[in-house]
Amino acid sequence: MKIAFYGSSLLSSYWNGAATYYRGVIGSLAKLGWRTTFYEPDILQRQQHRDMDPPDWARVVVYDATPSALRDVVAEARDADVVVKASGVGAFDDELLDVFGAARENALRIFWDVDAPATLAEMRAAPDLPLRRALLNLDLVLTYGGGPPVVAAYRELGAAACIPIYNAVDPETHHPVESDTRFTADLALLANRLPDRERRIERFFLEPAAHSPNRTFLLGGSGWADKSMADSVRYIGHVGVRDHNAFNSTPLAVLNVSRDSMAETGFSPATRVFEAAGAGACLITDAWEGVEMFLAPGEEVLVARDGQEVLDLLAGLDRKRAAEIGAAARRRVLASHTYERRAVEVDALFKCELARIAERNAA
C-alpha cells in the first residue's frame, strides 16, 4: 500500500519541529508494510542543514519551490492509496491542497495537522481560507495533539472525522547516552524562536535565569542570536537531531515550553517531551491541561505554572532525584508512547477507512 505524504521535511529538523514526528510515524508504518513517498520543498536552507540521509524506509522527493515543480509532485498523488497533506509545509500550502483533487477516486484523503490550535485559529479568523473549504471533501483529519477540544473544533468546521495521533518516542533514535560537556547545565531548553512562544520562554526560562546568577542555563535552537540574555544563559544555536540525546542526557533538568495556542488548548505534548523522556531526562514542563495522559506529574515529569515554580523545582533537585524522575519517564513512554504503538493505530485506521471508501464506491 502506497502513501503520498506532502510535508515540511523528513530529512531536516532545521526550522522544522515536526521532523522527528514524521520520521517516527512513517518509519514505523514501513515496518507494517506501508510504502511512503515524502514530498518536501527546498526552502529555508533545510537541505543545507540535513541531519538525516534519505532512509531506506521511505522515498523522499525534494522539489524546487516553483509552480512547475509543484505541478509535477501534485500529479504524483494519483499513484497513492493514501494521500496526506500536512499543515505548515512552508511553500504553496494552499496550492498543495490540489493533491486531493489529483488523487484517484478510491484513495483515502487526509489533512494531517501538526499545529492544530494555530491552524484552527487561522481558519476561524478567515472563513474563506482554501483549507476550510477543502475540509468538506476530505475523509479524515489527523492531528499530532489537541485532544477533545481540537476534535470538537474540527467537527464544527465540517470535518468528517478528526483523530489525534499523538507524538511519541522512537527508542532506537532517542535513548540515554553518556554526558557531553557541550551541554552541561542546570537547566536546558531546546526551542526555535517563534512569535507565539517567545513570551512564554521569557517567563519560564530567560527571566528565571536572570534571577539565578549562580545557576547555569543552556539554550539551543534557531533564531535567538540577537536576543538579550543574562550571563547565566549560554546560547549554542541550532542543535541537530544527532545531538538531541546528549542534549537531553547531560543537564540536571530539561525544560519544555509550549507554544501559546498549544498551552491554551492542552493535550498537545511537543515532540521534545517524548525525546527528553526517551533519553531519561528529568523534564520540567510548563503547565497544560492533559499532561497526566502522558506522564505522571511529580513522578515522571515536573510541572511549573510560572518561572518561579521552575526555580523552586530546580532547587528541589539533585542528581539522584533527577535520575529517578528521568528513569520513570523513560519507563512510561516505552510502555505506552512509542511510534510503533502509534503506527499500529494508524495502520488500523487507514485500512478501515480504505475499506469504507471501497464499499461506498461499489454501492
Rank of each mutant, 00 (worst) to 15 (best):
P130N: 03
F92M: 12
P164Q: 11
H211T: 11
A225M: 05
D196E: 10
W34K: 08
V169D: 09
A209K: 02
A75K: 10
A58C: 08
V177W: 02
T285E: 06
A328M: 04
P67T: 03
Y21A: 01
L129E: 13
L96Y: 06
D180H: 03
A75Q: 11
G298F: 01
Y22N: 10
R319F: 04
L70G: 14
A287P: 04
W224S: 03
S12T: 08
F100W: 13
P297V: 10
A126S: 15
E156V: 02
D64R: 15
R259W: 13
A329W: 04
S28Y: 00
F38T: 15
G280W: 04
W288E: 13
V333K: 00
A315Y: 00
R109H: 08
R272G: 14
A329G: 10
A134I: 01
A30K: 05
G326T: 01
E345I: 12
E95K: 09
T184Q: 15
K227I: 10
A19L: 10
K31P: 03
C282S: 04
L218V: 11
G17D: 03
V84Q: 15
S8A: 12
P54D: 02
L120K: 11
R50W: 02
L70A: 08
H211P: 03
T338S: 09
R78T: 15
A343H: 06
L157C: 03
E324V: 14
L32I: 08
S68R: 15
D196L: 10
L135C: 01
W34M: 06
P213L: 05
E309S: 00
G220F: 10
R124G: 12
D139T: 09
V291I: 14
D51Y: 12
D286Y: 00
F217M: 08
P176G: 07
L10C: 08
R215F: 05
V344G: 02
S268M: 00
D56G: 12
S228L: 11
A210Y: 01
G88D: 09
Q47R: 13
R199T: 05
A69Y: 12
R155Y: 03
A270Y: 07
P195E: 09
R342F: 11
K2D: 11
P164K: 13
G146D: 02
G101T: 09
E264M: 00
D56A: 12
L334N: 13
A121T: 09
